[in-house]
Every structure is written in structure tokens, then in C-alpha cells.
Amino acid sequence: MILAALTLIAIGGADLLRRFVPRRPLRIAALLVLAAAVIATGVLADAIVPALIGVALAALWIWSMPLDATGPASFWPAVLLAGVTVSVTALMPSRPDPGIVGGVWHLPAPDGEIGFDVAMLALGVVLFVAESANLIVRAALDREGTWRPADQGGALRGGRLRQPQQAATGFQGGRLIGPLERILVVVLTLAAAYSLLAAMLAAKGIVRFPEISKDGETGARAEYFLVGSLVSWVVALGAAFLVWWGVRS
């Protein structure tokens, strides 16, 4: 589990730094600090090898999943990452004695105490769904050649002609709405608040209906909404399942 946790922390933290640290020298310095922090956490938690693997996987992720362009491997890095995190969480349960930090770690919960490995996994999930999941959604849209409102002009990608940008009114807050929505999906799923979860997802469809209803014969807006939303929800539900499994392992 600690391998999945440190990997998600490294990847999620790196993507947030890439998004919000504009200057390249500062961004590189911040990424190096993040890598050092992950390795230091591994040393203190008797998980130096998982920490090094997590940093290496984060470096590969940064190379293969650029922020605003189609990566060389499309969304396959996300598929491989899902396989790795699920496998190591299932095969490597929470450790009873996580090194030096285990002697001072104490995080109470209603049903007992949250272990260090589980807490790190939850932190990694939150960081990952905040920005990294946006890259997965974008990669899925690019792979399927789905039209996006932000595209400038028509372009032939994925074997399909994308339409030019429409009026700058629809879907402008996706980079903020998406992370908030995914965090809510994770929280509501873990809280077993399925009725609230269903209501939230239904409300999103209702709010987006005026934009979707403006579609012509192509159905481009509906396709964009469905592909983006479904991929985003799958990532969030998968993240919630990962934490659920970690808590019970």
C-alpha cells in the first residue's frame, strides 16, 4: 500500500506544481523539493524502495502526460498506473510498524485509529484527483477525437474533424468543476451516501442540458460531456475504491 500511496503523492503533487508554478526554474526546483520530500518520507517510514519507485514513476508520468497537449502514450499511462496501484494495494496491506514515523503517528478516527499507510494513500488520492485526473480526461478526449470547446479552429485529430471554437460561454470552468466534483464523488462514495451521489451526478446533467441542447446534427457537445464526465467519474470511483480497500486490508 505504501508504494501506491507514495506514487500517487508524487504524481499528484507534481501535476499540481506543473499547473500552478508558472516559471520553469521555480517549477523544476519545486519538483525536486517534492521528490526529496517523498524520499524523506520513505526513509522515515521504512519505505525507501517504494519512495524511489514512486519518484521514478512520477518522472515517467510527467514525460508521458504533458499538461496541455496529447502525450506520446495517450491515456495508457493511466491504465498502467491503475493496474500498479490496485495490485500493490491488494498485495501490500497496511503495515503495523511504519518505521520511525510509526512511533509518533497518531490519527484518531470514529472507528479507531487511521494508520500511516492509509493516511498517505488518502492524501495521494486527493492530490491525484485534483489535477492528474484532468490529464486523463484530456487524453481520453484527444484519443477519441472528441470536439472540445477550447479548441481553436478546426483540426483533424484521431481521424475526426474537430469543429471550430464556439462562443466562449460553455464549459469554461471545467478545470475547477472537475476536481471539486471528483473529490465529492470520492467523499460521498466512502461515506456510503449513494443517494446524494446520484443526486449530484443528476444535477450536473440538468445544469449542462441547456448547452447540450444547442447541439446540431453532430451531437458534439453531448459527446464531449458524456466522454469527459464518464472518464472523470470512473477515475473518482476507482480512487474511492482504492481507499476503501486500503482501509480494510
Rank of each mutant, 00 (worst) to 15 (best):
S195Q: 14
P50L: 03
A122W: 00
D215Y: 03
R175W: 04
S213F: 05
L3D: 12
T70P: 07
A109D: 13
G54K: 04
Q166D: 12
T89V: 07
L127N: 13
V118K: 08
W245C: 09
W63N: 12
G103R: 15
V49Q: 14
L196R: 13
A30P: 02
Q172Y: 03
E144C: 02
V33A: 15
Q165V: 05
P108N: 13
D15G: 05
D142H: 05
P96L: 01
A69T: 05
L237S: 14
W76K: 15
S132E: 01
G54S: 06
A155Y: 07
P96C: 01
L190A: 09
D151G: 09
A119L: 03
G99P: 02
D15Q: 11
V186G: 07
D15N: 09
W147D: 04
L3C: 13
G112C: 03
P164S: 06
K204D: 08
A191T: 11
P50W: 03
A130K: 07
V49K: 15
A51H: 07
L242R: 09
E181C: 05
N134F: 00
R18V: 00
A140W: 02
H106F: 12
L107N: 08
P110A: 02
A40F: 01
G112K: 15
I2H: 15
V118C: 05
W63I: 09
H106D: 15
V185H: 06
A191K: 14
A69S: 11
I53N: 10
G153A: 10
I48E: 15
V88T: 13
L52E: 08
V187G: 12
A130L: 04
R157I: 06
V79Y: 06
P66L: 04
L196T: 06
V125L: 09
L34A: 09
L196V: 06
S74Y: 06
G238T: 06
R182D: 00
R248I: 02
L81Y: 03
G173F: 01
G145K: 08
I136R: 00
S87G: 12
A59M: 06
S94N: 04
L44E: 10
V84G: 11
V187L: 14
R95H: 05
G216A: 12
A203T: 12
A35K: 11
L6V: 07
S74D: 15
E181I: 02
V137A: 01
V243C: 14
L180R: 15
R221I: 08
M92K: 11
E144N: 05
L91R: 14
L196K: 12
M120Y: 01
V49W: 14
A203Y: 10
P50K: 13
A167R: 15
A199V: 04
A155T: 11
A14P: 06
N134C: 00
A73W: 04
V235I: 01
V235Q: 00
F209I: 11
P110G: 03
L141D: 04
P77G: 08
G238C: 10
A167I: 07
R148L: 04
L141W: 01
S232N: 08
A82W: 01
L237F: 03
A90R: 13
A122L: 03
